[in-house]
Design a protein around this nucleic acid. Structure first.
Lengths: 344, 344
DNA sequence: TTGTAGGCGTTATCAC
DNA sequence: GTGATAACGCCTACAA
């Protein structure tokens, strides 16, 4: 017994305005110079009255475009990620696009499922922080689907895609040099499992490189740890290892991202270890809690919002010019000094 | 000189499998019992070979559905929000839906623009944490568009929509009672501007109600403050007001959400005010930094992930049964005691 | 069990 | 400047 559904179509507008669908379509397409002022005015009025909204599905079917941009990220719950999405969204909105956001959860299989789903939706472009496990599918989407793909944060050199992120090597070297310069003798690097994730790999390698630059046999060359964040006791024992191993030497921890940093900090609190009295601390990313923990945690800030904007801009640009040269944009990071890394 | 685009359609599958489009369509629709095992097998093979993905736009155009669910939130950058989205996404994915996420930024005008955009995309349902300023448009979307709308977090009693959130009155009363019981004489309540936002309004009112329950003339009845987070000096002076006004009485702050809480905490750090030595502290939400600040901040936890799941489930349910009775689901909160609220 | 013939709401290509 | 008409890819009667 449900009422009839009222869908207003271009036809309704045409009829009420006393013109043909084509004419209305011209209006919708913004081709005003092809219309007489009179009809243009009339159509405008009718659209308002009827509250008509063009159907994107129909538009997309015809033009093979959806006005949708996919955003496939590892974890929407990570503040780093949301800042990027915010930037991307603002740009997209300005250009009439919406964002289809999906979480791969760092699982290649989930990522693959979503790629497939996004393909079904005929997304016009894809922003992806990839697990690295679906190169074949991405290549296919790009080549056969002819959809612009832009990688954020994580690179895949073999793939011919625009990429936006930071210079992880440089940022890490800057971080380590800074800690060294602040006179910390031992430095531990904590990261999530490096696996195939490029920023992690690059930061890990650069950590050792920076140490070697200072001293080819630097004792902390063995102080790089990969932690599984789901495994609480592992982090505990790794931390313990570092602390006992280094005895009374001056020491600091460099966390590869803010999630790792927070886990470690909570553990330190539990253990009664104080920052910076007992231990220096520096973290990648610049989460908003950094100023609130201990007397402030020093961080390496990425221009996340800007990164998101740039990604979206690259997608849009490549949509209009598929042949444009492929580029990798690396933003500079900024070291924000707070109380966690005093000179010792 | 671009290569021809390869779009694989149902027609290609049909041809290669030696059957008609309808037959393939039946396969896609999962109506296997209408197919002979042989053709079924053949179609399956061809689909795999061709890597065929049905076009959602075409599907949607015919069936007037998009397999898209809109999520219109105030701020995707807020951890409370992302936890909810995460829950909603997981449910949606399971049922073949994707999430179109948009930020209203708490601006009714932006919200309206997005509602319109989402309508164009023919979303099959809407999850909304509303600014409260677009009742007319929402009603229209619901009535004429016949799309299920579920409100999260923020209620609008006048609108006939399912709603999911917490019992703000009860949670606030519990919070205040707890602080009173811990022997704090003065309690300040800090919230973002109440305006038309229901949880803020409810918490604000319940704060005073709880105080009155304890003492009809409780001195803190005037200690409820609305702060504009963009205005740093305002927060500063409000804080100062409270601290001087209360002199040496025992006191605590109740923050209406984690964003306000963090701002206040950073201010306190700047001022050298310690928690809990100088001041007790309790916050709504349970951000992951709560355990890392001072010796831990007590919080009122909402089951955010569960809330998100429930919202999505309600949307799906109402899609299949539009006549189902409208319900409001209020989850219970949990008070998590940490070191910031000792008995004084 | 399978095939044929529309039609969903748009845009693009012709005419007029 | 405007109006028919044919797609776009899929689904759903209705036939066979």
């Amino acid at each position: 017994m449900r009422e009839k559904e009222t869908r207003i179509t271009i036809y309704d507008v045409a009829e009420k305005a006393g013109v043909s669908k084509s004419t209305v379509s011209r209006y919708l397409g913004g081709r005003f110079h092809e219309l007489s002022p009179k009809t243009r005015e009339k159509i405008k009025r009718v659209i308002d009255e009827l509250q008509y909204r063009p159907n994107n599905l129909a538009r997309g079917l015809k033009g093979n475009r959806s006005y949708l941009i996919g955003a496939l990220v590892a974890d929407i719950t990570n503040p780093y990620t949301t800042a990027i999405l915010r930037g991307a969204e603002d740009v997209c909105k300005q250009h009439g696009y919406s964002l289809l956001i999906c979480n791969s959860d760092n699982h290649p299989s989930k990522e693959r499922e979503y790629i497939s789903m996004l393909q079904s939706h005929k997304i016009d472009g894809l922003l992806i922080q990839t697990t690295g496990g679906n190169q074949h599918f991405l290549r296919d989407l790009s080549e056969n689907g002819r959809k612009p793909i832009v990688l954020v944060d994580r690179k895949i050199p073999e793939l011919p895609f625009d990429t936006v992120g930071i210079d992880n090597r440089q940022a890490t070297i800057q971080a380590v040099s800074y800690l060294l310069q602040q006179n910390y003798r031992r430095i531990a690097f904590f990261t999530e499992p490096v696996a195939g994730v490029s920023p992690r790999r690059e930061r890990f390698a650069a950590f050792q490189e920076a140490l070697r630059m200072a001293d080819p046999e630097h004792p902390s060359l063995t102080d790089a740890f990969e932690v599984d964040l789901a495994n609480d006791s592992q982090l505990d024992s790794l931390l313990e290892t570092f602390l006992t191993r280094t005895g009374r030497e001056t020491k600091a921890i460099l966390a590869a991202n803010s999630v790792v940093a927070l886990k470690i900090i909570i553990k330190l609190k539990e253990k009664g270890i104080r920052i910076p009295d007992d231990l220096g601390f520096l973290s990648f990313d610049n989460p908003d809690w950094a100023a609130a923990v201990f007397s402030g945690i020093s961080t390496i800030e990425q221009p996340t919002y800007q990164i998101g904007k740039t990604v979206a801009e690259l997608i849009l640009k490549r949509m209009s010019d598929p042949q444009a040269a492929i580029q990798t944009i690396s933003y500079q990071t900024q070291l924000i000094e707070r109380a966690s890394t005093p000179r010792v």
